Simulated assay, not measured.
Amino acid sequence: MTESFVSIRNLYKIFGPSPKSMISHAKSGLGKEEMLRKYGHVLGLRDINVEIQKGKITVIMGLSGSGKSTLIRHFNRLIDPTDGQVVVNKVDITKLGPSELRQLRRTQMSMVFQKFALFPHETVLNNIGTPCSVRGDDPKAVKLTALKWLGRVGLAGTENMYPHQLSGGMQQRVGLARALASNSEIMLMDEAYSALDPIIRSSMQDLLLELQKDLHKTVVFITHDLDEALKIADHLVILKDGEVVQQGDPQAIMLNPSNEYVKRFVSEINRLRVIRVRSVMDVAAAAASNDVIDGNVTLERAIGAAMGDANKVFDVQLDGKHAGSLRMENVLKVISTVDDIDAQHVS
């Protein structure tokens, strides 16, 4: 099992003049609206428990006001919790002093912002090299590092330009390159692509996944877009009103939404394009066909390969080895309505 690199444990965040005095009310189940009405405090997060796996992409998603941006700001202590722990590489960072916290932010974590947050008076090269310069690296090494990551994000040749000379998508690539240049183990991305148009946004998602194949960063990605979450997440956390309503493998959440709130989310998704063959195959079955299909392809691809044959059976392989069998009749069950999933569970 992949080790947890960051652990959020029993985390509460309450905003107001005396948040500590509200903890007992929050733990006893006092609702968000009632706390505000009775005591003039806002319950931002309640009893959050999330394990962030090393080298994986964890996506935290929810609608506006769900607490997702508040939560990500606890990872680098831009916000301090009212109660609970944030453990990074076995260290509870809520107990760090100012100098230790600065060191954590400089060496272990980087952040990609929604509004790019580039220095308008600095060149692209200097923007990318900022984390290294702040750390005190040799100027020649800073330049080489910045040029390296500029090339990796597809912007070689723009090093002497300024942010205002770049498109929004190009500026966000600079922001991503800057985060990568820090060589931090953890990359925090708060609605990083939400300001981009759909086509550029999709290309940035592809770029992140492409880089992740080589770099294996521990990424925490915030979004309100389920399509985006399903595309990039290894682990998905769904928030509502400051609480986790469901978390786990995105495929499992799609197939087994835990409540009506999550069902409403997934009902708008074209499951054929996001659910993978491996999620609906019969794991126990021996190879029953000479027709082989990769377990990581989508059900849409599987339907195309079956060429309309509802009785088709595929031998499913992962990494070149037999992993199970896929019966097209089970695929038909998956594409039924979300409300029918519980009754027609596909194992």
Rank of each mutant, 00 (worst) to 15 (best):
M1C: 05
F5V: 05
F5W: 05
Y12M: 13
G29I: 05
K32D: 09
L45G: 03
I48A: 11
K54D: 10
K56S: 07
V59H: 09
S66W: 12
S69T: 15
R77A: 04
L78Y: 03
G84V: 10
V86E: 03
E100K: 13
Q103L: 14
V112I: 15
S133Y: 05
R135A: 15
V142A: 06
W149C: 00
W149H: 01
L150I: 00
R152M: 04
V153G: 00
G154S: 04
A156L: 11
G157Q: 14
T158D: 05
E159K: 00
Y162D: 13
Y162K: 14
A181R: 01
E185K: 12
A192P: 08
Y193M: 15
D197M: 12
R201L: 07
R201H: 10
L208S: 04
L208V: 11
Q212I: 08
V219K: 03
V220G: 02
F221L: 07
H224F: 11
I232S: 03
L236C: 05
Q246N: 11
D249C: 12
M254G: 00
P257A: 08
F265L: 15
L272C: 04
V274F: 12
V277G: 06
S279D: 15
N290K: 15
V292A: 02
V292K: 14
N296G: 05
V297N: 04
D309P: 09
D309G: 04
K312Q: 15
L318M: 12
L326C: 08
L332A: 11
K333T: 05
V334T: 06
V338A: 10
V338P: 01
